[in-house]
């Protein structure tokens, strides 16, 4: 729209400027002038049809041959090669992934085995320690019992001995007392009997 008005400005302006080049006027009526000077409208002018056809056949024919023989096989080859390469790489990746998965599986299996082995070792150690502790305790207890028994025996012996000595002491004491009291020596058998009687009473 704007341009149409600009065009309109050009038309009256052209005659006002005498220095305007002739070509400017031709701009507006180029088609008509072209027709006057050259005969036909150039793109439809049949003068050069034969020449254009010949050169089109030559150039396009060459181009077609070049495409068919060189470019298309080459680009097709590049694309195919890449396609193969990608497929190959994908296969390789899948294979590596499977390998990695297998490795992970092995690792986990081994880890589990090691873990159970560790458990077993710990269990054994714990068991051994427990057994040893129990054995030690039993041994110590037995020793203590033994010592206790020995002590008790000794106490009993001492007791018996003491009791035996008590009779003797009592006899001596009684002899001494009787000596003091009656000034006569009591017979040993009497005293012994008396002490024994007293012992049994006590």
């Amino acid at each position: 729209m704007f341009v149409t008005s600009a065009y309109a400005q050009t038309a009256p302006a052209a005659p006002n400027t005498p220095a305007a080049p002739a070509g400017e006027v031709h701009t507006e009526t180029g088609v008509a002038h072209g027709g006057e000077h050259k005969g036909a409208f150039p793109p439809l002018d049949s003068t050069y049809f034969a020449s254009q056809l010949l050169w089109l056949v030559i150039s396009f024919g060459l181009f077609y041959l070049l495409m068919k023989k060189v470019i298309v096989p080459r680009v097709g080859g590049i694309l195919e090669h890449r396609h193969d390469r990608i497929a190959q790489d994908l296969d390789e990746a899948a294979r590596l992934k499977a390998e990695a998965d297998a490795a992970v599986e092995t690792y986990e299996k081994e880890l589990a085995a090691a873990r159970s082995k560790g458990h077993k070792i710990a269990e054994t150690a714990r068991e051994a320690a427990k057994t040893k502790a129990a054995a030690d305790r039993t041994a110590i207890e037995a020793e203590l019992t033994e010592k206790l028994a020995a002590a008790e025996t000794r106490i009993g012996e001492i007791k018996v001995k003491a009791f035996a000595e008590v009779g003797q002491i009592a006899e001596e004491t009684a002899t001494a007392i009787v000596d003091q009291l009656i000034g006569a020596k009591a017979s040993g058998d009497d005293i012994k009997a008396a002490v024994a009687a007293a012992k049994t009473e006590a």
Partner: peptide, 12 residues
Amino acid sequence: MANDPIHQFQIS
């Protein structure tokens, strides 16, 4: 003919 819009199609 520099401004002739048809000139560009002229075969020489």
